[in-house]
Amino acid sequence: MIKFILKRLGLALLVALTVSAISFSLLFMSGDPAAAIAGETASGEDIEAIRRIYGFDRPVLVQYWEWLLGALQGNFGESYYFKLPVADLIAERLSITMTLGVCGITFALVTAVPLGVAAAMRPNSLIDRAALLLSVMGQAMPSFWFGLILIVIFSIQLGLLPPSGSSTPIHFIMPTIVLGYYAMPAIMRLTRAGMLEVLSSDYIRTARAKGASEVRVMFRHALRNAIIPVVSLAAVQMGFMLGGSIVVESIFALHGAGYLAWESIGRNDLPTVQALILVFSGFYIVFTFLADVLNAWLDPRMRTA
């Protein structure tokens, strides 16, 4: 198990390094960074001066090395737009995004897994059909539209929930539902399909032949095996929520990291974009790693992989 974890950790670091190289090279792929900073009206000399000030004239590898060293110490340079350290900028926004992500995935899991299990226990029953309807709706409704509907109902008509902002936990209720509902259908269907497959397997019959109760069969013997692919999916979804909650953050005016990324791309604020890419992919890598470890704990066959 320890060996497995170390192996996965090494792999994760390798991926992180690759991602850092790619996100660093963004700086050069999107055109001349000096010209971008100088603005459209700048003269050729201005651009040259900026090139020297920012060190763009040095060898690329040296620049990458310095940037990487800085990034490891939490120093991502200064935002072209805010003229503030990128790290401070992101740290402030990240807590909102993380809160939203954790709430969103928790909401999705807490609704999708029991619903998937219930649906699998009685295929084609009323609850199975209801779950299917719910998941089709979740898949079909765009987040922005669902978000607006919630705002119209709960904020404008009923006046129960605040439509925007992030100052209290109450503010996170609607964004959590919208974000979580987006992830729910896939988790629900994977749980249902996994449970159906596992329930028809020989070892479930063995468990019943030992005299295990239905509850024990469902949760100890079946769910434990059915949940394995769900863990991987949830990890990917979690990574996605942390990086991709841009839509939800904009609807509810939650100024999180996703929103910052969106704005920074528009402003050509490359250090911020670079840092955000690194942070978002860092989340992906961390969650994939955690999912691997969790999966290895759940499925002993993977420990030798």
Partner: peptide
């Protein structure tokens, strides 16, 4: 069901054809 559970694995037990798939992969 309760009565049957109390018999199965206790007073009557069964050995299946497929040893490769009849054990739960997740438990020792």
């Amino acid at each position: 069901p309760r009565k049957m559970r109390s018999l199965r694995g206790n007073r009557m037990s069964m050995i299946f054809q497929e040893p490769m798939t009849s054990l739960n992969p997740a438990y020792t």
